[in-house]
Simulated assay, not measured.
Amino acid sequence: MRYQFPYASKGQVIGLLGGSFDPAHEGHAHITREALKRFGLDRVWWLVSPGNPLKTRGPAPLADRVARARQVMQHPRVDVTDIEAHLGTRYTAQTIARLQAIYPQVRFVWLMGADNMAQFHLWQDWRGIMQSVPVGVLARPGQRISARMSRAAALYAPYRIAGRYGQLLAHAHAPAWSFVNVPMNDASSTAIRAKGNWSTQAG
């Protein structure tokens, strides 16, 4: 793979967008561009995961998903990586801890769509994630209310940075999170698979 361990310089703020990207689509690219603007990030790394522990169906082969992601997300400040496969981590909390150890002079911000925020309390050591890095949440179709009413949003309400001040998130100390509404893009990996437009589906 071209990027096993991306380069990062001291003091950079890097957003991490993880997922199975099965397949990557314009919706992923859209929230990535918005995150760069809204949260004051220097770069974003896509973490194309070997598999999603919350999904029972296996994803398409990793190499296929990475190749597709690099076609979809072409931006000078975005790196598409399969770093979790090289780290051997299965859960986000583990990945973040390893990245912080490898890149001690870099600030990381975890990025996710509002749909993930709604179920964030189901993630392995989700409180540990909130305590270790700032979290940027980007609204996606139909998930604004459920994300704002989620268990994580309620528990960490005192640490929320208003969306209009989202640029502060990059240098905030965890726990800190910000929810921003972005222009909607309703592209969906599930819909793409259902239409048969993703030729490398897993069996």
Score class of each variant (00 low, 15 high):
68 R>H: 12
57 R>I: 03
111 L>C: 00
180 V>M: 04
6 P>D: 09
75 H>G: 06
93 A>V: 15
189 S>T: 07
141 P>H: 08
160 R>L: 12
112 M>A: 09
114 A>L: 05
190 T>V: 02
8 A>M: 12
37 K>I: 12
81 T>P: 04
72 V>M: 06
164 R>S: 10
94 Q>V: 09
46 W>G: 04
3 Y>M: 07
201 Q>H: 08
194 A>H: 13
145 I>S: 09
94 Q>T: 13
57 R>D: 12
130 M>L: 15
8 A>C: 10
42 D>E: 11
117 M>Y: 04
102 I>Y: 07
158 P>Q: 13
18 G>L: 02
147 A>S: 12
134 P>D: 06
132 S>A: 14
167 Q>R: 13
189 S>W: 00
93 A>G: 10
137 V>P: 00
2 R>K: 13
197 N>P: 02
1 M>G: 10
113 G>P: 00
194 A>P: 00
171 H>T: 15
117 M>H: 07
192 I>S: 04
187 A>Q: 03
151 R>C: 13
114 A>D: 07
168 L>P: 02
91 Y>A: 01
7 Y>W: 11
72 V>L: 10
17 L>F: 08
155 L>Y: 06
64 D>I: 07
195 K>T: 12
196 G>F: 08
100 Q>K: 15
118 A>S: 14
67 A>Q: 15
190 T>G: 03
145 I>W: 06
13 V>K: 12
97 A>L: 09
19 G>D: 09
196 G>R: 14
31 I>M: 10
39 F>G: 04
137 V>R: 04
9 S>C: 08
80 V>Y: 05
131 Q>V: 09
34 E>G: 04
194 A>S: 08
153 A>L: 03
103 Y>R: 11
95 T>Q: 07
81 T>A: 08
92 T>W: 01
80 V>S: 05
75 H>F: 14
152 A>T: 15
114 A>T: 08
47 L>N: 05
116 N>Q: 14
116 N>G: 06
95 T>E: 06
200 T>D: 08
88 G>E: 11
15 G>F: 01
8 A>D: 07
200 T>E: 11
102 I>P: 02
56 T>H: 09
189 S>Q: 06
148 R>W: 07
6 P>N: 09
68 R>F: 05
15 G>K: 00
159 Y>M: 10
140 R>V: 01
118 A>K: 09
170 A>I: 02
64 D>V: 11
200 T>H: 15
110 W>Q: 00
57 R>G: 05
155 L>P: 03
191 A>K: 15
15 G>P: 01
118 A>D: 07
10 K>N: 12
60 A>I: 02
191 A>N: 13
77 R>F: 04
59 P>W: 03
9 S>E: 13
172 A>K: 05
13 V>N: 04
177 W>H: 05
166 G>N: 14
178 S>P: 12
68 R>I: 11
6 P>C: 08
24 A>F: 03
178 S>Q: 09
153 A>Q: 06
201 Q>A: 13
